[in-house]
Design a protein around this nucleic acid. Sequence first.
DNA 1: GTGTCGCTAACTAACGATCGTAAGGCAAGC
DNA 2: GCTTGCCTTACGATCGTTAGTTAGCGACAC
Lengths: 219, 219
Amino acid sequence: MTKKVTRRMAADRPYLPPGLATSDTRQNILVVALRLFAEHGFEGASMRDIANEVGMKAASIYSHYASKEQLLLELLRFGHEEHNRRIRSALNAAPDECIAQLSAAVRAHVRMHTDYPMLAAVSNTELHALSTEAGSPVLALRANTEAMLAEVVRKGVQSGVFQVPHEWLAVAVIGGMGLRVAHWYTPDFELDGDGISDIYVEYALRVLGVSGTRPEQRT
Amino acid sequence: MTKKVTRRMAADRPYLPPGLATSDTRQNILVVALRLFAEHGFEGASMRDIANEVGMKAASIYSHYASKEQLLLELLRFGHEEHNRRIRSALNAAPDECIAQLSAAVRAHVRMHTDYPMLAAVSNTELHALSTEAGSPVLALRANTEAMLAEVVRKGVQSGVFQVPHEWLAVAVIGGMGLRVAHWYTPDFELDGDGISDIYVEYALRVLGVSGTRPEQRT
DNA sequence: GTGTCGCTAACTAACGATCGTAAGGCAAGC
DNA sequence: GCTTGCCTTACGATCGTTAGTTAGCGACAC
């Protein structure tokens, strides 16, 4: 595995929250797997490569994880659950008013992608490597998360605060712009995650026809 | 190759322009390769699978293309060249005025992604499978295309017509939202490519603080 | 018209390599 | 003693690609 490959994302640090896995070794395996999946794709990253970087032999990984697919599934499940949790939590904590709700959702969405850029990017590029059976709960989570954002937009449009020529496309735009952050963001960007999400909230509100409104305070 | 996989994009038709390759057989190979790369990833799609679907044996592909990587490179090169060409052409044809320029660029950008959704999506997800050497011209083209959009935004901001809290993030938002179209678009969506790009132009202008301005006429 | 040559595009067979994973074994810790 | 976590060995499978062969077609010469 010494072949130099074309970079498809800016992130180079496979950040995962400490304690995600039940042991240090399992955590290391996930972290290395995430990085190699990001660099080489799921199929392009072999168990021998992952094991070598962890400092063990490939067959030993099976003491910890049942299969290669299981590694990917752990990563993608956590990624989607965390995303969903963050947005739900942000919505629950925000005032029940459409600008505040939208701001909170976008902030959470963008922050997920600045906090876990590599994980977020892999979640989008390597989904195909999951069997339909393994992937369907992940897709269901994704749909649920999207629906939360769509509901916020729908309510805002219904109340007349948001004005859009096409509601679903507004949701697609707001979701998509946040998602792409994962592909270009690195920690040495001139703004931190909070700074970026402030700006993104402003842009999302503009998309919704709320121009020049101050973004929600970030405390 | 009968394993059912999780879908990561909506497009299911590997559209490429007729005459892209120099013979029918070469064209068929590219079309099948595009679809299988999209479904299974570059490494997950084997030459035997591609050959079987074309109706020949894997070794015969080498009469037409030097390597598996060459297949991917042909696809990605065309995708990036076409994208670049369309945006350049649209900018050249539009009036030299920042709203018209931005509108033209966004329209061309979005139309590329509705005309070639599968190719566009694969261009983003499978870049890693190119060696650095093969991929660097592709990345250079990408950077050039981005720079065109960035220049349009910069000029608009400089002239005072566009007002943004962060110029580069506005470029990232506008580019990213168009790019994501490739992942959800299918031809049975309620709007066609023109309809979608009309809306996207409106949203992009809103991001830039030009609210409620009529989008450029699409003749 | 016929035969020959060269080229293209397909084939078969196989190479060297790598793959994910199973089975059996050993050592350390509790 | 049992469990865990590592090892080695190896399996069956697949991979991208090479080398050699064959058939068909078109061009050319006789």
